[in-house]
Write a protein that binds this DNA or RNA. Structure first.
Lengths: 179, 179
DNA sequence: TGTACATCAGTGAACGCGCGTTCACTGATGTAC
DNA sequence: TGTACATCAGTGAACGCGCGTTCACTGATGTAC
């Protein structure tokens, strides 16, 4: 594959990740994603096998980036401090309003059961890796799982409530409930 | 409106609430909902103005039922006990697997920003009423909001993970994190 | 160096399909006399 | 009580539209001699 073609593929994938974060894996159309990448719809299938394949790759990549970001936290911190820091970012207003480099779960979780099986497998693997990252010991794993639920639910609720004082309160309240 | 017609309307609305719980407000088609109610698609517009109007009514009704259910809890309980009991039901395996009389938020939250404005207004009002129901005092409101985020996120994550041991662990972990 | 051909990324029109919505019609029920 | 007509809930075919996907084509770039 030529350099040019693989750069184009990256542009399409980038456009797909933005669309996925904001509108989930189902609603954005192939034509819209290609348009956002500065291309026309017909060329899409030279780069990806199907719309589902594109969205699965975008989903997988975004979750992997979330975990990489966590790995950058100071190794000497306690597991609880890591959870608090992760939530401070995840539940910030900046992250709520972000359109790139954000988490795909708030917009996608409700649609996952209607998507092909590999999406679920990616989520299962991500969840297990997140627990490994956020729990200090096996006994601690439940705290990591509960904090994940709290973060995802808090961000999804805050986004659904729109730009309002109530939305800000949800973020603040969820942040202070991290265990 | 005749008795017969209003009973038919109820059947359509019941079919819509089931579809909404499982698949959100966008994916189920008018034809599917009518089929589930034992009717053909053409008759739909004698009962509802549009698909959005149907789904908004189903969404509103389901949230109101959730609040009614909370009102049935013993009045003499503390606000915290009410939150613990609410979560014990909401995060039970039975509720996770329920297809009727469940909460529409896990399946709908991610799609809300793509729906007409009234959906958001209904969610804002529901959130405020839930806080009133689950907080003992104004200072307590943040705990109610955090628990809502935890419950919605926990149920959405558990459902997305499918029928697995990890899904059960998410429910258990979230339940024990209620504040 | 110049020409002829092959390769390749991307275009744009077309396809079959399912959707939300409309509407002429049907068949059952209710009403007038 | 019986007949003629009006009302009404529901049917099913049709509409225009946007979707995912396909494919013949174009124009630029690379290669052979």
């Amino acid at each position: 594959m030529s350099d040019k073609k693989s750069r184009t593929r990256e542009r399409i994938l980038d456009a797909a990740t933005s669309a996925l974060i904001e509108r989930g894996p189902i609603e954005p159309s192939v034509g819209e994603v290609m348009g956002a990448a500065g291309l026309t719809v017909g060329g899409f299938y030279a780069h990806f096998e199907s719309k589902d394949a594109l969205m699965l790759e975008a989903f997988t990549q975004l979750l992997a980036r979330r975990r990489e970001r966590l790995k950058q936290l100071d190794d000497s911190l306690s597991a609880q401090d890591r959870r608090v820091l992760a939530a401070a970012f995840y539940l910030s207003r900046k992250h709520r309003d972000a359109e790139v480099d954000s988490c795909p779960l708030p917009s996608s979780l409700g649609e996952l059961s209607r998507l092909p099986e590999p999406f679920r497998r990616v989520l299962v693997e991500h969840t297990e890796l997140m627990v490994a990252e956020l729990a200090g010991s096996p006994e601690d794993a439940d705290k990591a799982l509960a904090d994940m639920a709290l973060m995802i639910g808090g961000l999804a609720l805050a986004r659904a409530l729109g730009d309002s004082e109530l939305s800000d309160r949800v973020l603040r309240a969820a942040k202070s409930a991290v265990i």
